[in-house]
Simulated assay, not measured.
Amino acid sequence: MMSTTPIPFYILCGSLGAGKTTLLMRLLEHWKSQGKRAGVLMNEAGEVSIDGPRAGTIAEQVMNLAGGCVCCDTKEDLSWGIAQLVRDYESDVIVLECSGMADPAEVIDGVTDLYTARLAHLEKVIALLHPIPTDRDSMGGFVTKQAIRCADELILNKRDLYVPGHWETFKASITAQNPYARVWETSHARVEPSLLLEPIVRLSPAQTVNVEFGVPRPSATSKRASYHPIATTVRLPGPLNLVRFLSWMKTLPPELERAKGFFRFAKGPELQEFQYAPPGNATITPITLLDEPSHAIVLIGRGYDQEHCQAELLRCLENC
């Protein structure tokens, strides 16, 4: 099995034209000044990358995921790109700039895959927004709403272009959707990178949690909003009992939005891949991989009982 320490991974997402590439350039300058090798994944909806060459003037390596949306059309390329930046280019940190069409929740799903998570650890989701009229039912409206919901850092950009009353209304609409993220108000994406990249201080962190979103600001209550996604990694120290696991699959809570992982059954030599994405049924499929992944299952959802889900899953171990 491959042994490596996951490197920090950041997601930049948000509205089309909100200033994501401008912020990316500021982050790259910061990492370069610290002597870090930054790898960049650029996702652009067109077949040709426009912003990638700009980032390439500073970054150690830029990989373009052009020609589709990273949350669907080029999702497999995302995992491949992360692996290449870590293994071939020895990046110290990776940042993904999503197209304005990409659903951040789907991107999070991709980078929390157990196979990919051995290489890169999702540190933060940074969303850039600017106050433009958006139809909530349109693709842009949906993506913006998802970016707000998933963000750890909300950067409200282009303040210099709007009158105070309009800006305050815009800000209130954003914080109402996610009162737990830090909020930055700026123009030209002028945010101090060292402050933006400061690690999130989590209250009483559970060891099984590898991704948490919407950590409260110091002045806010410590209670987590029910709509903020939590990804819980349950590591499996041994093979599973087939009968008990099939029973566990029937008890998945309705708050669970995604589950995935790898393991083996006690009476079968094949590596198994587990996938669950409602409203579809959970599936178990034999799989052959080049590298043996960690045996674990990742649970992603909102408001579910983490401890109960973990305990019930661990009861499926053959030697439990």
Rank of each mutant, 00 (worst) to 15 (best):
T5M: 07
P6L: 14
F9H: 07
L12T: 00
C13N: 14
K20R: 12
L27I: 03
L28Y: 03
L28S: 03
W31E: 00
S33N: 15
Q34S: 10
Q34F: 07
K36H: 11
A38D: 02
M42K: 07
S49I: 10
S49K: 05
G52Q: 05
T57E: 15
A59N: 00
A66Q: 02
V70R: 10
G81W: 13
G81V: 11
I82Q: 06
A83K: 10
V86A: 11
V86E: 02
Y89Q: 15
D92P: 10
V93S: 08
V95G: 00
V95R: 04
V95S: 01
E97V: 04
C98E: 04
G100V: 00
G100A: 01
G100L: 01
M101K: 04
A102E: 02
E106V: 05
V107K: 05
D109Y: 09
D109T: 09
D113E: 05
T116C: 03
L119R: 05
L119C: 06
L119N: 05
A120D: 00
H121T: 03
E123C: 08
K124M: 04
V125D: 02
V125P: 06
V125Y: 10
I126P: 01
L129A: 14
L129T: 01
H130S: 12
P133N: 15
S138C: 14
G141H: 07
T144Y: 09
I148P: 01
R149W: 12
R149K: 14
R149Q: 15
A151S: 12
E153L: 08
L154E: 02
K158G: 06
D160N: 08
Y162L: 12
T169S: 12
S173V: 06
Q177C: 09
N178Y: 04
A181H: 08
V183W: 05
H188N: 10
A189I: 09
R190W: 09
V191H: 07
E192D: 13
P193F: 10
L197P: 01
V201R: 14
L203Y: 03
S204K: 06
Q207T: 10
T208M: 05
F213Q: 15
V215P: 05
R217E: 12
R217H: 12
P218E: 14
P218L: 04
K223C: 13
P229S: 10
P229R: 00
I230E: 03
T233F: 07
V234K: 02
V234P: 04
L236C: 06
G238T: 06
P239L: 10
N241V: 04
N241S: 11
L246K: 15
S247W: 03
S247C: 11
M249K: 15
P254L: 11
P254R: 07
L256W: 01
E257L: 10
R258Q: 11
A259K: 06
K260W: 08
F262S: 01
F265T: 03
A277S: 11
P279D: 14
I284V: 04
T285D: 09
T285K: 15
D291K: 12
E292G: 07
G301L: 01
R302W: 00
R302A: 04
Y304L: 02
Y304I: 00
D305C: 03
H308S: 08
E312D: 05
L314T: 04
C316I: 07
C316K: 00
L317G: 02
N319A: 13
